[in-house]
Design a protein around this nucleic acid. Structure first.
Lengths: 219, 219
DNA sequence: ATTTAATTCAAACGACTGTTTGAAACATGC
DNA sequence: GCATGTTTCAAACAGTCGTTTGAATTAAAT
């Protein structure tokens, strides 16, 4: 085992290529050519391309989701019986995800990958992600409700949806914005990204619900 | 020309399938089988698959962007020399896009398609979209600046980014949320979707900029 | 050293991809 | 009528796709 394991070399290469061009656009032959392994090795170690995709995602996402949940639990413990502040909950949700951008091992590639997953229409992948995120959705959904006592459940769901969109899009096109504004966010500047995202989404969650616009004509 | 034109039948079918499964996942043979036309007809009328994708998008997006710009111009004219309210600007941006969900001709399929485009990593498609959106980005960027006098240009760019993410994700997964909450949004209820999105993003834009978190250790 | 298991390898499988071709079918103008 | 240009059609092109196979290689265990 002098050189890196075949299995992890496949994972690393697949992660990089998937993040760059998408899951469908990258073929197994692209991966094995770049990873310098045999084509059959993919099926030997993972079984199928679909399973490889799942492994690539799960390897990073599972620790992230674990960190999210422990962060939330710790915050809850520290705050005693006082309800958690919304910004605190959002921080627990965002930080573990954006921190991997600063991680030299994972690199900025994976974050983009996670952002991309949410836009995929692949049925199996969607099911898989929902399974991975199930506990996170439950715990943080409850935390949001607790932090926003005045808000309808329905409205809270919609706003969680908006928040998820802002988060995913930011991950997916992190480099895009950097080029526009000149900030170098690929460095350990993920802190300011998280701060900006919290500012925006927390205010969005707390927004006053405006009354429905009266219809111009009766149907 | 008793039955619908071949060209538009290809466009309609491609739009529907692309929205359901994505651009890469749908082959030309899937399209021509469902549209009941010959395979070569695609290349005869459009030249290539890439060109077909562009046509599918442009057919709906171009009128939408036109409507966005005229709405903004009209709002500006009505408001005289008073600066436009942020909510008004957002309404001009969102409404034409979400209105197509209620359009029985376009159906809810196209909206999803637009949402999906933003997550695509395809280089050519991205260039194409930027070209289509150029004027919209310029005009509305200026309108946001005018409506948010206190905000840095940099912070405004980030928040525009967050807003775009919330918008795209909402379009892309409109059905998802509907199933959860029980609202039937595929009907002409796009009004309330727009209202909710305006509430959320307007508050996000106006959020107080919190100071940077002090670093735990000096690097 | 011999047996057993785990891993790598080249080669092929059938199915599918976007695109091209050249001949038919159609419509239109003279 | 014939000629013109436009549109449709079946068939094939050259690749690429994910997956499978069976032998060759390496590692581990006895």
């Amino acid at each position: 085992m002098a050189k890196t394991d075949t299995k992890t070399r496949i994972l690393d290469t697949a992660e990089r290529l998937f993040a760059q061009k998408g899951f469908d656009a990258v073929s197994l032959r692209n991966i094995i050519a770049s990873a310098k392994v045999n084509l059959a090795a993919v099926h030997y170690h993972f079984g199928s391309k679909q399973a490889l995709v799942h492994s690539v995602i799960a390897r990073r996402l599972r620790p992230i989701n674990g960190e999210r949940l422990t962060n939330l639990a710790e915050a809850r413990a520290k705050s005693g019986r006082r309800p958690l502040k919304l910004e605190r909950v959002l921080d627990c949700l965002f930080r573990p995800l954006f921190r991997v951008q600063a991680d030299p091992k994972a690199g900025p590639t994976f974050a983009r990958l996670v952002g991309r997953v949410m836009g995929e229409r692949n049925e199996g992948l969607h099911k898989f992600m929902m399974g991975e995120l199930a506990e996170v959705i439950i715990q943080f959904g409850a935390a949001f409700e607790a932090a926003l006592p005045g808000l309808t459940k329905e409205e809270a769901d919609w706003r969680s949806h908006f928040m998820a969109g802002a988060m995913a899009h930011t991950l997916c096109n992190a480099d895009l914005l950097v080029r526009f504004t000149g900030t170098d966010a690929d460095a350990s500047d993920y802190e300011s990204t998280v701060r900006r995202l919290i500012d925006f989404t927390a205010a969005g969650f707390r927004a006053k619900v405006s009354p429905p616009t009266r219809p111009r004509k009766k149907k």
